[in-house]
Nucleic acid binder design. Structure first.
Lengths: 343, 343
DNA sequence: ATTAGCTGCTAATGCGCATTAGCAGTCAAG
DNA sequence: CTTGACTGCTAATGCGCATTAGCAGCTAAT
């Protein structure tokens, strides 16, 4: 059933003419213990290890000591499918980088459920193979999050998360401030009637954008339109936009902005001449559109890096819960201009 | 962080007034063993389990069973940095999908060396943490491959590999046939003088394309130009192309084809009117060019899936070495047309 | 000569579970 | 009243490792 059986420390011990305990000590004994094993013996053991390619079984290691220098990465959606890949890849890049720097390996938890129905705590919960775990995904299962928070397994979320019983450790992007800055910029350019186009789900990332928008809009500008449904035809959105008298439109999704821009162009309108458009987040694939939208940047790689560092801190030092929001720098772009006077 | 110590079967046993073994049996004993535990006892145990919320520690479980259900993924280049991401992502997608289906987790080996200097057997090598391993990358280190093949650690390469001491288990793309088909198609359109533009390294993927090209070209068409160096200016390549009298150019790298096409357009030439161009492989990011080149598709996702399945077979059943080449379907494109008569 | 201290190792134990051998009791058949 | 079969459970072991206690042999100091 099981393929060729693994080498064990016992095998190494026999080959080196020592005991299993000695092999373990050579491998990772405390300095005080190591000092009592002469150079000669250590080298003999090391040599056998090197020639056989022996590596300690992570499961056993974790069993005995509780740590194995492996970080789990759990994604609520499969990480690589092409629609998702562009979303997850930058995070993974940052994570991989930092993990390597900290000398941890990454265990990609494929989850038990198929496709969309992933659950952390599904069958036999393999989570604990790793020393700790990063959790990412657009939508979190609140019940699972709560269970995680209340448990004693170290984890860090990527993306801001509301308290779930207790505060959730996370590294997120400061969408609220990013959005507010853009709204203020628009106001500075004379925009007084603003449209908000995007979903309004319970997800924190969505809520933050909306909060930033409405907070900034309230004092100075006027939100005149809020289109929730995103599957509406671009032409319809455009119509609503003009009917409302808005001079600037804030899009949560780049895709919507692109669609609306295309529709506008077809009508002979241009941005930002006829109206301004702002996207609340960085473009995943900028090259798909030839328009460089005004927006803010989401520092995904940096989020991955910092989340990883935070997780390691929690694993190694039982650090207190931290919550970090990274600044989302504005992206100048070319779709936000002075407000056009309408009649 | 603070939490009561994890419950163990021992705790459950005490609460239910039975032994640890009984708890384990109730939880997942063989039917024959279960038959000997009366309903009443089972219910008592189940009740305690339910009220305490006990869940078996998956680590200990795997430890006892002897299987980790972890697949390693080793890449010869870091997988996520953006230049590489487009290359690796489709493979990873397939791998993740199949791993999930087979209920394995993925261990991404971040590699010891940073950047280009990755080695599988670098010391501190954590390869064997996993039950088996997938190896991918454009260029393999032959010495390492040999060591892998001769060892008894289950692995599967992605991409065809020459024997290295013994046959290498792999799942690759059939570039030879893919290339041959395209050459034959060109011949059918009247192309008799063909150019081959691309490197000719030792890598199997490169060799296969060249073999397919020269085999197909030999009977019917005539290879009249072979440009190895790829860093030459596009204009120069174009000059050489015309000087040779070739009516169709076969590019190994999409990037070269794009450059040459741009240069041609600048000279007022058009494809496939003035000459035909064929790319030997699928476009990683087609949208970067507005020209849809005639080429063949590399089924990267499927390669990932099948390689994963093959690896699982080897791990679980010690299956014999398999070598699979997947068909690379032609991509019609718009750059291959009838040969133009030259003077 | 005894003690104390050091060196170079190893035996033993436990992590939480799965699994097997087997014990004590009951009951029916011979 | 003995044997055998069956019932209802438990003790014991091992998975591969980390870790601790401690043993035997030696030297230096008292």
């Amino acid at each position: 059933m099981a393929g060729p059986k693994r080498l064990t420390q016992h095998d190494i011990a026999k080959l080196a003419g020592v005991s299993q305990a000695t092999v373990s000590l050579v491998l990772n004994g405390a300095p005080t213990a190591l000092a009592r094993i002469p150079q000669e013996t250590r080298e003999r053991v090391q040599h056998v290890i090197r020639t056989t390619g022996y590596v300690a079984d992570p499961i056993a290691r974790r069993m005995a000591k509780g740590l194995n220098r492996i970080l789990g990465v759990f994604t609520y959606e499969p990480a690589f499918p092409s629609e998702q890949a562009d979303f997850f890849t930058p995070f993974l890049l940052g994570i991989e980088e930092e993990a390597q720097a900290q000398n941890y390996d990454l265990l990609l938890l494929t989850g038990a459920g198929v496709g969309k129905d992933r659950k952390i705590f599904a069958d036999g919960n393999r989570l604990r193979i790793a020393d700790g775990c990063l959790v990412l995904g657009r939508e979190f299962d609140r019940a699972e999050l709560k269970r995680l928070v209340l448990g004693d397994y170290p984890f860090v979320a990527i993306g801001r998360r509301e308290d779930a019983g207790e505060p959730v450790p996370y590294v997120g992007g400061d969408y609220t401030s990013g959005t507010r800055a853009l709204v203020e910029k628009a106001r500075g350019l004379g925009h007084e009637k603003l449209a908000y186009i995007g979903p309004s789900g319970p997800a924190e990332s969505i809520a933050d954008r909306w909060n930033g928008f409405s907070a900034a809009a309230r004092d100075g500008a006027e939100p005149v339109l809020h289109i929730d449904a995103v599957d509406r035809p671009a032409g319809e959105i455009l119509d609503a936009l003009f009917a409302s008298g808005a001079t600037a439109a804030f899009f949560v999704e780049l895709a919507d902005a692109v669609r609306v821009e295309v529709a506008a162009r077809e009508r002979g309108l241009s941005l930002p001449g006829d109206f301004s458009a702002v996207v609340l987040g960085s473009h995943i694939r900028a090259e798909r559109s030839h328009v460089q939208f005004t927006s803010f940047n989401i520092p995904r790689e940096e989020m991955g890096r910092q989340a990883t560092a935070m997780l390691v801190r929690r694993i190694e030092g039982a650090a207190p819960v931290e919550q970090i929001l990274l600044t989302c720098e504005p992206v100048e772009g070319e779709t936000l201009g002075p407000a056009k006077k309408r009649t």
